[in-house]
Design a protein around this nucleic acid. Structure first.
Length: 612
DNA sequence: CCCCCCCC
């Protein structure tokens, strides 16, 4: 039994037409080394037959070749071409011809089993097929119209011109290369690509100088790549290159990608040079090539690792104003806007937009928001989304799914209850999500208190109460809600709050306890305000205050009785200068009973880390 | 040639 070849398929394809999953025969195959020494970069040139015509201008990458299986593609193998693209080549004699790039295939029958060439195919050439066919024996006449010369469809942009079209330098009609074939070893190529995303223009100034840049992430059917423009090419191309449009691009510098900063799936990235040519392709025949999204339900982001990127398709349930502030680390002026996203997974997450994206965002009327490559972050135990320079955001994208989602929101989503992934859990539990667990010795060794000098350094510790100072642990405070300022006794039955600038008939007791706490490695004096001290003492500040007034010895005894109690503390350490002396001031900002499940999980992890 | 992706 023999497989039936798709007679005529290759002619259709090589004329730029579509043919769904043609079945063809491999007549020979030849490996072409990339010269890079990396086998995965090798290409295979393949000689194909559909039983009617043969095509020798066909290629595939090593990755696609590997799909044939361990035996590869022996002569006479029959394959199904699942995906392919052609590149137009403009020969020196002015005629178009095409190269077929196979992007996916399936081996139907091993060549060793087939054993013969099927049919009596003749070499395909555009010239031959364009000729009037000999009656009876020639190929079918149902071919598409001749490929339209591309040059007249081109607009714009060769280097150094005022934008007028120069017929000699247009890229359309020349061979185009797949992104996957780009490497630093070849520089004569033209790619035809869709712009997936475009960054803001960023200006910088550092020790090595100053400048400006922007970058675009590009894709074609074979892959994706980042292109960055510096200096004057920024001015020249920033407005020209637009997201979602298709361009011919040539003469860029190709270099190994810095994977640390570039998550685009390519070993290389590109930089524009003064020779770079960018031309918009107006006859977008890359309809097949749409940007690929891998949407994740908002609820699922709970399980996503921080710092990874996700694609999200959601509704902006609400949005805030643009806020400006100075970055603590760089001093740079930052602008952000927070948007509340919801989707059918009944979860909500906060999206933070930055820079231009924040300014331009219009969240009126609960638009659909599409994000590609949004960054997942963790804060206070909750998850957030943020945009980066390479995040693509579309508001109300022109897609059928937009209507579906919008319909869901209008009918059900606007009144649904959502699980808030961005909710911070520091208020419950021990809030240990971002705060490191340390011993008191590590706190000293790592010089906590001197790292983040503005806000202090936080750490978690399991600590034992060694001594609580009962003297000066209680004070009379302003009765105004939330004031808590110490009042001055006017000695006339009234009490003065300087902060509220008011005299009161009464006061409330507050605690400011200084206590020495320790673990196996050392000890530390910490101070604790009312809310936390009450949890250690097990009495309200009011009760403690009244006890102190009534029975100072009883207060001391009570405080002593607390020794050797254990708690989980969240501490803030800050180095302060006092009388020209540096000392570490520590506030226990949170006190919790020991949650053994959580604490043991931390210990178990610590043991695993020690073993590893 | 950047390489920051920020803040609470």
């Amino acid at each position: 039994m023999s497989e039936k070849l798709s007679s005529g398929a290759l002619e259709t394809i090589m004329r730029g037409g579509e043919y769904t999953e043609p079945v063809v025969q491999v007549l020979s195959i030849k490996k072409m080394n990339s010269g890079s020494g990396q086998p995965e970069k090798d290409r295979y040139r393949i000689y194909l037959s559909d039983g009617q015509y043969t095509v020798s201008h066909a290629m595939m990458t090593a990755q696609i070749y590997a799909k044939a299986g361990p035996k590869g593609l022996p002569r006479f193998s029959i394959i199904k071409i699942i995906r392919s693209m052609t590149s137009v080549i403009n020969n020196t004699d002015g005629r178009d011809s095409r190269v077929l790039l196979i992007l996916d295939l399936e081996l139907l029958k091993d060549g060793d089993e087939v054993g013969v060439k099927i049919g009596d195919p003749i070499p395909y050439s555009e010239a031959a097929s364009a000729r009037p066919k000999p009656s009876g024996t020639g190929p079918s006449t149902s071919v598409q119209a001749e490929v339209e010369p591309v040059a007249k469809r081109m607009k714009l942009a060769t280097n150094g011109t005022n934008g007028t079209y120069d017929g000699n330098t247009t890229l359309g009609g020349h061979i185009t290369h797949p992104i996957s074939s780009l490497s630093p070893y070849h520089n004569k190529w033209i790619i035809k690509v869709r712009v997936m995303s475009k960054s803001d223009i960023r200006k910088w100034e550092n020790a090595r100088g100053s400048g400006q840049l922007f970058s675009v992430d590009l894709c074609d059917e074979s892959g994706e790549i980042r292109l960055t423009a510096f200096g004057t090419t920024v001015d020249k191309y920033y407005d020209v290159i637009q997201v979602d449009k298709v361009y011919y691009i040539s003469k860029c510098q190709v270099k190994p990608a810095n994977k640390q900063f570039n998550t685009v799936k390519n070993d290389y990235e590109m930089t524009m040079t003064s020779d770079t040519i960018v031309e918009e392709c107006l006859d977008d025949d890359m309809k097949n090539l749409q940007i690929q999204y891998n949407f994740v339900d908002i609820a699922k982001i709970a399980e996503v690792e921080p710092n990874s990127t996700v694609d999200v398709f959601a509704i902006a349930k609400s949005y805030g104003e643009v806020n400006s502030f100075q970055a603590k680390t760089t001093g740079r002026e930052l602008k952000k806007r927070e948007v509340q996203l919801v989707d059918k997974s009944n979860a909500t997450i906060t999206l933070t937009l930055w820079g231009q994206q924040a300014e331009n965002f219009n969240g009126f009327d609960n638009p659909v928001v599409l994000l590609k490559g949004a960054r997942v972050t963790e804060f206070g135990g909750g998850k957030n989304l943020g945009t980066t320079s390479s995040t693509l955001m579309k508001v109300n994208p022109d897609m059928e799914e937009s209507f579906t989602l919008k319909g869901w929101f209008t009918s059900a989503g606007s009144s649904a209850l959502y699980n808030d992934l961005s909710a911070r859990t520091a208020g419950g539990g021990t809030g240990s999500y971002n705060t490191p667990w340390l011993t008191f010795k590590e706190v000293i060794d790592q010089q906590l208190g001197s790292i983040n000098t503005a806000s202090g350094d936080y750490y978690m510790v399991k600590a034992t109460v060694l001594l609580i100072r009962s003297e000066n642990s209680i004070y009379k405070a302003c009765p105004t809600d939330g004031c808590n300022k110490k009042v001055v006794d006017n000695n006339d039955g009234t009490y003065r709050c300087e902060k509220c600038q008011q005299d009161f008939q009464n006061y409330k007791f507050r605690l400011l306890c200084s206590m020495n706490v320790g673990d196996w490695s050392g000890n530390q004096w910490v101070s604790m305000f009312s809310d936390e001290a009450e949890k250690v003492i097990g009495m309200s500040a009011q009760e403690v205050g009244e006890l102190g007034e009534r029975d100072p010895d009883g207060l001391s005894k009570m405080m002593e009785s607390l020794n050797f109690k254990e708690f989980i503390l969240k501490c803030r350490a800050k180095m302060e200068t006092y009388n020209d002396e540096q000392r570490l001031k520590t506030v226990a900002v949170k006190v919790d009973p020991i949650n053994y499940k959580e604490y043991n999980a931390y210990l178990a992890k610590k043991i695993r880390d020690l073993i590893a």
